[in-house]
Amino acid sequence: MTRRRRPAQSASADDLLSTLGQLTARAREGAELQQARVELAVALQREMLPAALPTVPGLRAAARYSPAQHGLAIGGDWYDGFPLPDGALGFSIGDVQGHDAEAAAFMGQIRIGMRAVASPAADPGEVLGRANDLLLSVDSVLFATCTFLRFDPVSWELQIARAGHVAAVWATADGQYGVAEVCGGLPLGILPGQVYPVTRRSLTTAGVFVLLTDGVVEGPSFPIEEGLARVARLVRAGAVAGTGPGELATEVMRVAELTGHSDDAAVLVLCHEAAPAPPDGNG
């Protein structure tokens, strides 16, 4: 009678458990390293964003930034606001290609560079043209989309130019709302000599103007058109209710959570009053 050999089950199980233990330890180390890289990029990003945004009587601003929900898809989005030499205010929002600490550092360079070129520029189109030439001069492999907006507190007018960036959203206190029709050009840092047309908007009625990045309105859950429509309806409700810029920025950012976004996201909200009436010439 032939005896059957018993398989070495105990030895194989011990080896398997040992191997699994080693793999688990390596995975834990890898996860900790990745988390450290995420925290570094987030910290770098937040340090490079402005601590406060400028305001003037009749115009209030607020912004929010959210890192991606998963992985290392962080570091490229920014917003900014600063006074210009002629008394106007400049606001920008943008998205650097790439999702790592390098993108976050490059974002900081763009934000600072844009402040420098904005001072002598006549309008937002010239600002983006100068910024485009500046990025090309440093010979970087990265590029960025951007919207630059200039608010004139005398004429009560917005001047807007767009470089490959997602459209803005607007609403007024009387219930009008929509996606801003702003002509645009190529993203910054791709081709020299780009011309960026300027769209002008008179603020005759109190309302809200919202700049955002595509991480807010685009994700696996629905396309960018649906995301913009959802934000537009939300902004309309906020404009009619007189919601403050900080609260409205937080509400808009919640749309990013609904999209299941894999990118970081930024929102910049401008709440404005109606243009002041001209002084009475009769004295």
Rank of each mutant, 00 (worst) to 15 (best):
H99W: 02
A229K: 11
G87A: 06
P124Q: 05
S92L: 14
T250C: 01
R236S: 07
L212I: 12
R3A: 11
A239I: 05
D264P: 03
Q176P: 02
T2L: 13
P278C: 10
Q194R: 07
P223Y: 00
R26F: 04
E218F: 00
E39V: 05
D263A: 10
L16V: 10
V179S: 04
S262T: 15
G129M: 10
A266R: 01
F143C: 07
H165T: 08
G175P: 07
T204Q: 12
A43W: 00
E47G: 10
R4G: 11
S155R: 12
E181H: 09
V117L: 03
L136C: 02
G129D: 07
A274K: 11
A68R: 01
A266H: 01
A161C: 09
T172K: 09
A277E: 15
L248E: 06
A131I: 09
L17A: 15
P245W: 05
G94A: 05
C146Q: 12
S10L: 13
A277D: 13
R60I: 00
S66K: 11
W170L: 08
M253P: 00
P50C: 09
L228E: 09
P278Y: 06
L40C: 00
L158H: 08
R254C: 11
A88V: 00
L188E: 00
A121G: 05
A180F: 03
V235S: 08
P50D: 04
R200N: 06
G98A: 06
V240S: 01
E102N: 10
G21P: 01
A256R: 14
D14T: 12
E257W: 00
R111W: 02
G58N: 07
A104M: 04
G90A: 13
D264T: 06
F91D: 06
S137E: 14
F148A: 12
Y65D: 07
V195G: 00
T172M: 10
A101G: 02
S140T: 15
